[in-house]
Design a protein around this nucleic acid. Sequence first.
RNA 1: GCCAUCUUAGCUCAGGGGUAGAGCAACGGUUUCGUAAACCGUAGGUCCGGGGUUCAAAUCCCCGAGAUGGCUCCA
Length: 645
Amino acid sequence: MATGREILEARGGLGADVIAVRVGADVVDLMTSLPEGTSPSDVVPIRASDPDGLAVIRHSTAHVMADAVQRLFPGTQVTIGPAIDNGFYYDFARPSGQFTDEDLEKIEAAMRDIIGGNHDFRREVVSRPEAESLFSKLGETYKLEILAGVSEPITLYRHGGWVDLCAGPHVPNTRFLRAVKLTHVAGAYWRGDERNPMLQRIYGTAFATDAELAAHLAHIEEAKKRDHRKLGKELGLLGFHPWAPASPFFLPRGAALYSLLVDYVRALYREHGYSEVVTPQVYDIELMKRSGHYDNYREGMFFAVTADGGELSEPEKEGDAPRFTGDVRWGVKPMNCPGHCLLYAMDKRSYRDLPMRIADFGRLHRYERSGVTQGLTRVRTFAQDDAHVFCTFDQVADETRDFLGMLDRVYRDFAFEDVRIALATRPERSLGTAEQWTLAEETLAHAVRSAGREFVVNPGEGAFYGPKLEFQLKDALGRPWQLGTIQVDFNMPERFGLEYTGADNVAHQPVMLHRAILGSIERFLGVLIEHVGGHFPAWLAPEQVCVVTVSEKFNDYAREAIGSLRAAGLRVASDLGGDKLGAKIRNARAFRYPYLAVVGGREAEQRGLAVRQGDADLGFLTLDAFAARVRAESVAPSLRLSSPI
RNA sequence: GCCAUCUUAGCUCAGGGGUAGAGCAACGGUUUCGUAAACCGUAGGUCCGGGGUUCAAAUCCCCGAGAUGGCUCCA
């Protein structure tokens, strides 16, 4: 049978930028014979700039990088080197020494050398023994391990003198690899398992053209400027201290933002029939044993001890931690649900009480391993817009739909697009029966479908007590974050023996839904800061306007104006210092206030403000007109119609 | 947790065995100014912590802490 190249050439359609072909769902390189019976009309050319083409280029670049690494660092073994979303990587087992940033430059230079050699990529089908003998001769033990798990046909790809066990596809020739950049080195476990040896991974990226590569690198630089850790510091929102690792301090401006966000959720709760509760932070471990957290979530928890009934001794060596001998009786809550079960059971419940929607902004603590924490997005202490809905099984679908509606509203208020839904199913460690899980999974899937939404399945990613829907957004760096979630739980009500009296005057067991829209408030703020680049809308901004004076001569009027705006309910910052106006404006802009109001002689005389909104000059506004304008924007869009101004 | 890198003034960063540096911020003074940085001066340090090597360590080595990038998108 003919190759893709032959078929395209026969059609006269082999353009200079065609690097592979698509046949049905498969991407095949140009030099591979297509299966018998392939109709030429099914062969679609893939160009360098197509998404599939980009993956081919990147994977081929990974080969060239591995070639370069083995030239420069003899004895280094290759393992795997796939194309990934924004580039590629290759994992190496290097007998001694580590790759440094200088090495990356050398490797890149060697790659340019190889690419300049205009080597053809050649595909070769070999027998298993042939492959085994080749890679054992080369001393590639990882490749032998991979080979053992690979099914026929076994293919090799060569360019120049370099060979790799590889399924392909690849570009026809190294000259198609033009715009290449190695980005960073990282450790990575063999097959991602921390019991395996640590390999050294080199990340890089490649594009069809230099311009696209430059644009991608510029995009990364841009994203770094929006990094919430950087902005959090610059805008005076956040602080951290080594004595509270992975635990943010919200400074006054950050705390203002935090409260406004929580107040926003409270307003939604009022419309959607939730009641807020406040519950304990530290519980007897009996609670965690009852809920299953002690058995299933212990390594994610903090435990607390008291001097009562135990002995706290100073360490022998300086720098060591004090030792405690005694009973560990207390656990710091990692989730609100067990406490809410206790709360539910504090009264006798009727079917008339259901659904019972209990919201809790309680602080949670989870022990995240030291290497995985980052900024606000992965922390050890946080609060969620957490609520539990106790309901009958028949109410689950309606509650899920109401939740989806609420969620849509929230993500629209924050102008988040590209929200992806995933159904996370039963994990290895889980409570309850297979029947319960299946039923719960199907109920969630049905609710999403009936709301006209699509979802993907994440097998084994569910919570230990039930399946969940996860709602994912991407941050400025393109990293996906799970924010909202809704989880069906039959197990917790059973463990706590929860009941309600039905219309039939018989005790029934309620179903419990765990749900959050923002998820962790901390994480949401991190993502939001990056999403808006620090430019918060007027309804969320810590201060909605900054009043600055042209000179200190006008401070008296400025104070009067500030007082009047505050009396009208505005959040107002000011700069009444001795700087020149230009400097004040520069400083105020760095803080990204939604509005900037300049006050000088004219404004004092006419009892108003010279207002700008971002870059837009709004000119003169009276105090009343400006206050009315800002107050109209002081409520989230989805709440504006329903709340009187 | 593991691998790599980093940690110097409030912030951003330079320096790299021989007396600790800059810009911005702070503080004091002068200027009272109309839309992205006025001028002069003053003060500010456990160079992340501990140990070692050395005549001498912020600098080299070891241990620890924290932060940052990663730790299957599978040949």
